[in-house]
């Protein structure tokens, strides 16, 4: 027998269930318990960068919006730097931006929104330029293990065309599933997205 490697095994995932709000967004479950709460607003008045609203829905295999889904986003700041010690890239940190938020979908419409800033382009550890993007993690009843995807920005055509991750997607038509569409509404910049869990327009999900 060779020496044993003795690595531990990752704990198995389980669905977040229909009542995920109790633990992660108790106000949505209908009660107030913590002094401090996490939310879908990533910015303070002093955060640097272009204010944007990310707005979208997650659709099941019949095209019906999930009304009990929870999304988390993780993104770089306006200078393209993640607020984490492993990111040693050149962009300046912004003390007013953690870069993370979570949102539950509306119980009636299924709409999910985040108030954030548009991230800057990222320089990866190998020196590659990556198009600005937001990392998305999705959990809900019926989702056995959290789904990882990304949102890119429709007004970044040149950067998107050169992005190493988008270019990993074999079918150009599937790259479009990751592009949020920019529009202006009442003076606010809104990026709209649809995440399809199944069907001909199924969103690209990653095994990260």
């Amino acid at each position: 027998m060779p020496q044993p490697l003795n690595y531990l095994k990752e704990t198995a995932s389980q669905t977040a269930g229909p009542y995920v709000h109790i633990g992660l967004i108790p106000a949505m479950a209908g009660f107030d318990i913590f002094e401090k709460n996490f939310s879908n607003v990533l910015v303070t008045p002093n955060t640097k960068g272009e204010r944007i609203t990310l707005e979208g829905k997650v659709l099941d295999g019949t095209g019906t919006p999930l009304r009990d889904v929870l999304l988390e986003i993780w993104q770089a700041n306006a200078a393209g730097r993640y607020n984490h010690p492993a990111d040693r890239s050149a962009g300046a940190l912004d003390d007013e931006f953690r870069g993370w938020g979570r949102a539950g979908s509306d119980f009636d419409s299924g709409l999910v929104t985040f108030e954030t800033i548009k991230p800057g382009a990222i320089t990866d550890r190998t020196g590659r330029k990556c198009a600005p993007h937001v990392n998305v993690w999705i959990v809900a009843r019926g989702i056995n293990i959290g789904l990882n995807t990304r949102l890119y920005f429709s007004d970044e055509e040149a950067a998107n065309a050169a992005d190493p991750v988008l270019n990993l997607i074999e079918q150009p038509v599937r790259r479009k599933t990751l592009i949020a569409t920019r529009s202006e509404r009442a003076g606010k910049i809104v990026y709209s997205f649809t995440i399809n869990l199944q069907g001909p327009e199924e969103t690209v999900f990653f095994d990260v």
């Binding site: 984490h84 990111d87 890239s89 993370w100 009843r141 989702i143 997607i169 199944q198 990653f206």
Partner: peptide, 25 residues
């Protein structure tokens, strides 16, 4: 509940970039 809420395409394998090895503090 998993039947209509499960992706049917293969997940796209993505080597860890700075976007995956970092996370909220």
């Amino acid at each position: 509940s998993s039947v209509l809420r499960s992706p049917r395409q293969s997940l796209l394998s993505l080597e860890n970039s700075i976007s995956e090895i970092t996370g909220p503090v």
